[in-house]
Structures are given as structure tokens and as C-alpha cells.
Design a protein around this nucleic acid. Structure first.
Lengths: 142, 142
DNA sequence: AAGAACATTGCAACAATGTTGCAAAATTAA
DNA sequence: TTAATTTTGCAACATTGTTGCAATGTTCTT
């Protein structure tokens, strides 16, 4: 009852279950993006693979998390900011992936640039994916 | 001999084989990005699935094609421009995916914006993925 | 043009990833 | 506490991607 994860689930009209709470907690601890594989690794003994798939699916639908297009093609999931509610997503994201430690972060506070497309094209969503070195790996390598 | 695809293969130190020529031709016809699935569909009766995988892999290594991170997580491949040679890739790309017809194009001529990251971060590669309506679908819907 | 050296292909088998239906268990609402 | 509803785990399956190896095809030399 006095659980912040239960509160989040309740606000989103989701039943409160151990699996959902645990995965929410994982994201809050991680402070970055997680692959399905990583989530399965950390909770796989408690919950079935299928349940994890379905939990992530419903979290995406409800706007709790969003997917990140990744270059190596493993789906990444990250927490949405509070103002991303159901059917009302932030459509623009900048994501940073560290080439060394693979940490992926969602840079919500930096706005995506407006890009001018050829005539007739209509922009609906912009995803920016930046790869490089994060602050920590960058300072270690110098 | 008087085949442009054979020429391309020769220039890249690749043996000239039916599969490689056919896939190169596919890309030139497509004038856009192709998923592995699409390539398999169009050549699957002629060539083995594994061969297609290996062909695409080697094309990426040689810099003939590049991969596009896609939001729905099916790897997209697209032809590189001529100045993308082995070990010397264009690191910045803008890709446009049409939400209606799914056509994906590589907008080489538009340069990627410089994005300022938090202190300490080092940018090595920028991918911009824009979703919306292409010129054709946009005009049809009006 | 023929044969040796080399690279590529297809097959089979496997691993990883993702999906579906359904009965059992848990959660919610009364 | 019970009935209605949701969620879970299991099994089975579909899709996607990988590896080793023998057979075939390509290239290079002469």
C-alpha cells in the first residue's frame, strides 16, 4: 500500500502484481534503458519469460516505458517521463548509447532539432540516436 | 563482364556470384531500404536463407550497405553512397520512414545537426530517424 | 583452356527471440 | 468471503539468426 510502484500501477489502471512491481523497480534502479534480455536475467528465476514480454508490452501501451531503436537490434526499453501518459507520448527523444559500457540514457531535457525535409514530407516523430563515450568512460580513457 | 553489379563487386574485392549480383540489383531497384525478410521474399527461392545473411554481412563489412536502426526492430539495410568505402563510413545518417507505406529512404544530402551533450560526453556517431508521411502518401491523404 | 587453390553455397542442426491458447492462480470488486 | 475478472505459467509453436562442414562455384596461374 505504501509502495511507490504500487501507486504507479494503480494510477495507470493496472493490477498490482509482483512481476509488474519488480520490473518497475528494476527500471528505477537502472536509471537507464534495459533490454528484454537484461530484464529476464535479473528476474528470470522469479517470472516466466512470457510474463515479462507481456508486462513490457502493457507498460508500453500505458505509456510507462518506451522503446528505443537500437543499432544492434535488441529492443531497448526505458522509463518515460511523467508527462508521457497513455496515448499522449513524448514523440521526440534523444538517446545516447555508450560504445564502451553500453549504458543507454534518455536525454529528455535536450530538445530534438528541427530538420527540414524535402518538399511534401510530413514529420511526425523524430528519434535521435547518438553513440559515443559517456562521461565516465570518456574520463577513464584519457 | 559488362555488368555494373559485377563491377561493383570486383571493386570491393568480392567474388562475383549470382546471389551477390541479385541482391545488389534488388537494392538498386528498390531505391530505398530493405529488410532481410523482404530480400528473402524476393530471392528466397533462388538462394538459401543462410547465404542471404552472409551476403548482407559481407556487404556491410565492405561498406556497400549500412544498417538502419528501426523502431520496430527488424534490421533495415540500405545502399551506401559511393564515398562509403571499407572502414571509412559515413557516420551520420538521416533516415526517413513513412508511417503509411513503410518506405524507408536514406537522406544523405541533409546533414545531421550538431547536438550539444552534457559535459564529458563524446559524440562518435549520430543517427536520426524521422517517421512521418512521405511526399506521395502525404499528397494522397489530402 | 585446364587444373590447382581458394571462396562461396546449401544443408542440417542448433540457439535465441518472440507469440498464442488455455487452465490454474492471483487480484480486484461486491 | 465470494464471484468476476485479470494475470500468470506452461506447452507448443513461429520467426530470426548462427555455426560446421561437405559440395559446388569462382578465381588465378600457367
Amino acid at each position: 500500500m505504501n509502495n511507490i510502484f504500487a501507486d504507479i500501477l494503480r494510477k495507470n489502471n493496472l493490477s498490482i502484481t509482483p512481476c509488474r512491481s519488480a520490473i518497475l523497480e528494476l527500471f528505477h534502479e537502472a536509471n537507464g534503458a534495459l533490454t528484454h534480455a537484461a530484464i529476464e536475467e535479473k528476474t528470470g528465476e522469479q517470472f516466466d519469460r512470457v510474463t515479462i514480454y507481456r508486462t513490457l508490452q502493457i507498460f508500453v501501451e500505458k505509456g510507462l516505458i518506451h522503446t528505443i531503436p537500437s543499432p544492434d537490434n535488441s529492443i531497448l526499453y526505458a522509463l518515460c517521463k511523467d508527462d508521457c501518459s497513455e496515448g499522449h507520448h513524448h514523440d521526440d527523444h534523444i538517446h545516447f548509447i555508450c560504445n564502451q559500457c553500453s549504458t543507454t540514457v534518455c536525454l529528455d531535457h535536450i530538445s530534438t532539432p528541427k530538420i527540414v525535409l524535402p518538399k511534401g514530407f510530413k514529420v511526425q516523430q523524430t528519434d535521435v540516436l547518438i553513440k559515443g563515450l559517456c562521461a565516465q568512460c570518456n574520463s577513464n580513457s584519457q
